[in-house]
């Protein structure tokens, strides 16, 4: 279709009206929530994880994550005591349906749930050319779907592989730490559905949050600390072989 000058002149105001609509945005939906009073992270107590995949299924049901893509997933590690540097990792369908029996029972076998680490010095937000992804004032790394161009810079930049391009919207997508839930006083879908308490939402600014007692009494580690991303997903009982 070719657009004449006259048609363009007619189209421009229409586009302007549509754009105004985009600019208006949705009004504040959680009136009792004050961003400056929270600083969100997560605790993953690895020795409790049974690899049931409840978190993966819950995440997909809560956030309409397309099939074959994951905002959170579970990996199974097999570490031979003769070759601790080279673990064998599998994650069939993200661990969504649990795991088949281990091929190798000897050595060390354990599960590692993964998700966005909600880094304070997040490499993914730094590379965004348009300001479509950012660390919110309450410490959650979010994507603005309306602003995202789908350029994939952030997908490349995340050292943890936590982002993907949604094939339907062609925009970057990732764990929002169930922002629509935590701002309403609920826990995340994955934590709500974890049967053993292996995953726990943590508000680091709340002095009454059990995370503080846990951090005082346990050794915890973040993934890839050498990347200095200042990750806020803390793993207790993390094995050195985990990448």
């Amino acid at each position: 279709m070719s657009i004449s000058r006259r048609h363009l002149l007619l189209l421009l105001p229409a586009a302007a009206v549509a754009w105004k609509h985009v600019l208006a945005g949705t009004p504040e939906s959680s009136p009792n929530y004050t961003m400056s009073q929270h600083w969100w992270g997560m605790l993953i107590d690895l020795p409790k994880c049974i690899g049931c995949g409840n978190c993966v299924r819950a995440c997909q049901a809560e956030n309409d994550v397309p099939d074959g893509y994951f905002r959170t997933w579970v990996e199974r590690y097999h570490v031979s005591d003769y070759d601790i540097e080279n673990p064998v990792v599998d994650s069939p369908d993200g661990g969504k349906k649990g795991f088949p029996p281990a091929k190798e029972e000897s050595g060390k076998n354990f599960f590692v749930p993964k998700l966005c680490n909600h880094c304070v010095e997040s490499p993914c937000t730094q590379v965004c050319p348009v300001g479509a992804t950012f660390v919110s004032p309450d410490g959650v790394v979010l994507v603005d779907k309306q602003y995202c161009l789908g350029c994939r810079y952030c997908v490349q930049a995340c050292p943890y592989g936590c982002r993907f391009i949604n094939p339907k919207t062609d925009t970057a997508e990732k764990c929002t730490l169930c922002y629509h839930r935590i701002t309403k006083g609920l826990t995340t879908a994955c934590c709500e559905n974890c049967p053993t308490g292996a995953r726990q939402l943590a508000d680091l600014k709340n002095p009454k949050d059990p995370i503080h007692e846990f951090l005082k009494t346990h050794s915890v580690q973040v993934l890839k600390p050498n990347m200095a991303t200042h990750a806020k997903v803390f793993y207790a009982g993390l094995d050195g072989s985990v990448r």
């Binding site: 300001g131 950012f134 929002t176």
Partner: peptide, 23 residues
């Protein structure tokens, strides 16, 4: 409003409906 991004984006993300009611 808060940084180099659209401040309203957060309210929009927070407006998503909840599927798991919570125990």
């Amino acid at each position: 409003q808060y940084g180099h991004y659209r401040g309203n984006a957060m309210a929009e993300i927070a407006a998503r409906p909840v599927n798991f009611a919570g125990h």
